[in-house]
Simulated scan of single mutants.
Amino acid sequence: MRKLSGIFLVGLCVGAIGAVAVTIGHGAVQAPQAIAVTPVVTTMSESASPSPEPTPTPTPTPTPKETPKSEPPAVDAAELDRLVGSGEVSAVVFDRQLGKTTVSLHADRGYTSASLVKLLIALAVLERGGPVADVQRMLSRSDDDLASRFWSAYGGPAIVTGWAKRIGLTGTRAPADPGRWGDTRITAKDVVKIYQYVLAHGPAAIMAALRAATERGSDGFRQYFGIPDAAGGRAWAVKQGWSCCRPTRMLHTSGVVGDYIVVVLSEHPASVDYATASKRVTAVVSALLG
């Protein structure tokens, strides 16, 4: 601070002393500010001036907190088994953001694929430059006639064995009867791997067709059971499968719901009709998604 001058009057022992007002600014929490000093001189001929008010320091804007990612609820394996009654069920949920499986129930149990093998048929046909529109119709409407035509023209059982090796499917087997593509053997864990491959490397036409799945397949069967009925407004892309009765009834739902790959495979006694089995599979998916 600089010195202040004293002013003395004759006969009086009165000294006028300059007052110094010091204003200190408050720094933000993260980075303290330098102290600012403002000198003020007062004489007898001046009236006292108020000290200057501190300059307000802006309040730091809070850093917004990230909203925690919602995850599917914890699932009781016994409860999922109970939901299919006398049938069998396998379920796998894979979180694409976390890169890990969050639900795995009987993931290695084998089932007859029904129409889920059409995912492999689509990969085989499109890789060799086959008709995109027909492949998409085969997937979105689950068209069996197109699947049979492609199966014969693009390698039959070799489609399954070749793509199983390429993707790393450990529980997938070509059908014993080479003419029956729907009898291909699959597991829930392998179906998740197929989706991972399609999402990362497959032609975009495949996922576009799964997002456009129609409510009824080409045979009139209602294929919105499972994921579509349980998604609750969330965006989905699905490939469904159904078959009967050699000797049991198969009903599968698979696809992508938001950030999750969801696969539910189920097998029911032939005495359980499709309507009942469909409701049971939807209940399983509802339990998985919450």
Score class of each variant (00 low, 15 high):
residue 128 R to D: 09
residue 120 L to S: 06
residue 233 G to S: 11
residue 24 I to G: 07
residue 14 V to G: 11
residue 228 P to Y: 01
residue 211 R to E: 15
residue 135 V to K: 06
residue 33 Q to K: 12
residue 282 T to K: 07
residue 185 R to C: 00
residue 161 T to I: 03
residue 19 A to K: 07
residue 51 S to A: 15
residue 105 L to I: 12
residue 110 G to N: 10
residue 71 E to T: 13
residue 242 W to D: 09
residue 120 L to K: 06
residue 166 R to A: 05
residue 152 S to G: 00
residue 261 I to L: 13
residue 58 P to K: 05
residue 89 V to A: 02
residue 13 C to K: 05
residue 216 R to H: 14
residue 222 R to F: 13
residue 237 A to Q: 01
residue 111 Y to C: 03
residue 121 I to M: 09
residue 239 K to A: 05
residue 162 G to M: 09
residue 271 S to K: 14
residue 283 A to F: 01
residue 36 A to Q: 12
residue 108 D to T: 10
residue 188 A to N: 07
residue 243 S to G: 14
residue 14 V to R: 07
residue 111 Y to A: 04
residue 63 T to Y: 00
residue 153 A to M: 06
residue 239 K to T: 04
residue 32 P to N: 01
residue 257 V to E: 06
residue 140 S to I: 00
residue 256 V to G: 03
residue 19 A to M: 12
residue 217 G to M: 07
residue 77 A to H: 13
residue 258 G to E: 09
residue 207 M to L: 15
residue 285 V to G: 10
residue 147 A to W: 02
residue 181 W to Q: 09
residue 21 A to L: 12
residue 274 Y to L: 14
residue 191 V to G: 02
residue 201 H to Q: 13
residue 138 M to I: 06
residue 52 P to R: 12
residue 21 A to W: 08
residue 42 T to E: 12
residue 210 L to N: 08
residue 18 G to A: 15
residue 19 A to D: 03
residue 11 G to K: 04
residue 39 P to E: 09
residue 87 G to Q: 06
residue 212 A to N: 14
